[in-house]
């Protein structure tokens, strides 16, 4: 397998580019949270700073509650590997408005860059496909990015897209971390009340 060439921050910026009030975003803890913050703070982004393994299921609950909105979960490979059971859970409900993008650098980036199972070849998109997600894909080179962004933003879901990204250690860009504040501003923006 060739070494990845995709940079994570421009990819996440592309995923969120031109977002409107139909797009609701949940970021898994660690670097995906910082990537989304680097792309620009937004009340319709719920940044997780903990609750590892919960991002995809938060996305499911939100997608079921807001069927007319698009729900995009940005997760690291460590986050997703902790939640492989949710691949089955989501597949049973088949929410058409949910997309999960895994930013897969094949390492636990927050804790010293230890390799994850995807480094040894575990195929998360293959697992999602086997579970029955409507659309699955793996982007490996920059030329795969437009199709990944289009699938994440527009394709009938549930969409599961893995982006094989470089294992870069990037500067922290830290969004607000008060969970009650993040929740209140999200609900205010989406529901019109806290």
């Amino acid at each position: 397998m060739t070494a990845p060439t995709i940079h994570r921050r421009p990819l996440v910026a592309k995923l969120l580019e031109g977002r409107d009030d139909r797009l609701l975003v949940i970021t898994g803890l660690g670097t995906p949270t910082y990537d989304a913050a680097a792309a620009g703070d937004d009340p319709r982004t719920f940044f997780l700073w903990g609750a590892m393994g919960g991002a995809t299921m938060m996305g499911l609950g939100l997608a079921l509650a807001q069927p007319d909105k698009r729900v995009l979960v940005l997760a690291g490979d460590g986050e997703m590997l902790m939640a492989v059971g949710s691949l089955a859970t989501v597949a049973m409900k088949r929410p058409a408005n949910l997309a999960v993008v895994v930013l897969d650098n094949e390492h636990f980036g927050e804790t010293g860059m230890q390799p994850t199972p995807t480094h040894a070849g575990v195929d998360l998109a293959g697992m999602a496909a086997a579970a029955g997600w409507a659309r699955t894909m793996t982007a490996r080179v920059d030329s795969d990015i437009p199709a990944l962004v289009d699938a994440a933003r527009n394709a009938p879901g549930p969409v599961f897209a893995v982006a094989k990204i470089m294992a870069e250690k990037l500067p922290f860009v830290l969004p607000p971390k008060d969970g009650a504040y993040l929740k209140d501003r999200f609900r205010q923006a989406v529901l019109g009340h806290v």
Partner: peptide
């Protein structure tokens, strides 16, 4: 929603709350 493990449900219901359900 039938879960594979119980903690999935905690996260799911917090997502539901974000969406007003």
């Amino acid at each position: 929603v039938t879960l594979t493990t119980e903690e999935e449900g905690v996260a799911m219901l917090c997502g539901a709350h974000l969406g007003g359900e």
